[in-house]
């Protein structure tokens, strides 16, 4: 395993931009066999998993009126919902051989989710991995992750919740407003938690950021080499950015004329005319 992990802190960023950067880094890393860790502070956003159907999951009008930006990621799993200043999200693109990442999906989630467990340790909390891709704190989900894989690398994105606005989350969901009651919120709070609730105090995002850096260092036994996107990554990010605003990608199920017209990962680069070099 390497002694150093290249690391990027994107700061406050829009979902389309970070998803474009994620795909750019992932594609280039998969070609070059490199690794990178990164974190970002999401603006109010809803990032759908690859297979989720927007109209079935969310009330787009209510979400937009509340200021949420919507996009879709290339990895599967569930939605990453970020209310204002509610969390820090992370990404790890790791060379599977260099970091001895298990082929088995659940085992690899368990390994990479240690980042969250170590981050929680920094707050004096215990994180417990719950297969397939969650980390629990005192029996409630505090972190979820999603993963995809290339030929050489694994990409895992995830989040550590610090102060989640559950009422707003439910308002964005495709459920009748009258069902968004205190009881409904309590029901979610029985399954979902955040650092503010667990610590019974305000938690600054700088604290969360520091804890996540610690999580990366401990999990992979590395020091972090702070960096930014290189020229190739910036160029590919710019080329991919329109995709993450594109209705055909975000509404990929309903924009298909038939099942035969769907996107496939191998086709996306060509469809958007991206030159990876």
């Amino acid at each position: 395993m390497a002694d150093e992990l290249r690391f990027i802190d994107f700061g406050l960023i829009k979902p389309a931009k970070i998803m474009a950067a994620t795909e750019a880094m992932y594609r280039l890393a998969d070609r070059e066999g490199t690794s990178v860790g990164y974190i970002w502070h999401p603006v109010k956003s809803i990032i759908l998993g690859y297979s989720q159907i927007v109209e079935k999951e969310f009330n787009v009008e209510r979400s937009t009126n509340l200021g949420y930006e919507l996009t879709r990621r290339i990895s599967g799993g569930g939605v990453a919902f970020a209310s204002e200043d509610s969390q820090i999200q992370y990404g790890f693109i790791g060379n599977m051989r260099e970091y001895s990442i298990p082929f088995d999906i659940i085992e690899s989630y368990e390994m990479i989710c240690q980042i969250m467990s170590y981050a929680l340790e920094k707050f004096g909390l215990k994180g417990v991995f719950k297969p397939i891709n969650d980390v629990l704190c005192n029996g409630k989900k505090i972190s979820g992750s999603a993963q995809t894989r290339g030929n050489q690398v694994v990409l895992q994105n995830g989040t550590l919740l610090s102060d989640m606005n559950i009422r707003e989350m439910l308002t964005c969901c495709n459920i009748p407003l009258e069902k968004i009651s205190d009881k409904g919120i309590s029901s979610v709070e029985e399954r979902l938690t955040d650092l503010k609730r667990e610590l019974n105090r305000e938690v600054g995002l700088d604290e969360v950021r520091e804890a996540m850096l610690y999580g990366f260092e401990q999990t992979f036994d590395v020091t972090l080499s702070m960096d930014e996107l290189n020229a190739k990554e910036k160029k590919l990010t710019d080329s991919l950015l329109p995709k993450y605003y594109d209705r055909d990608w975000i509404y990929r199920h309903s924009s298909k004329k038939t099942s035969f017209g769907s996107y496939e990962s191998s086709m996306e680069i060509r469809e958007f005319g991206v030159d990876e070099g």
Partner: peptide, 8 residues
Amino acid sequence: DFILVPEY
């Protein structure tokens, strides 16, 4: 929101 890799 099931998990299937590669997603395509």
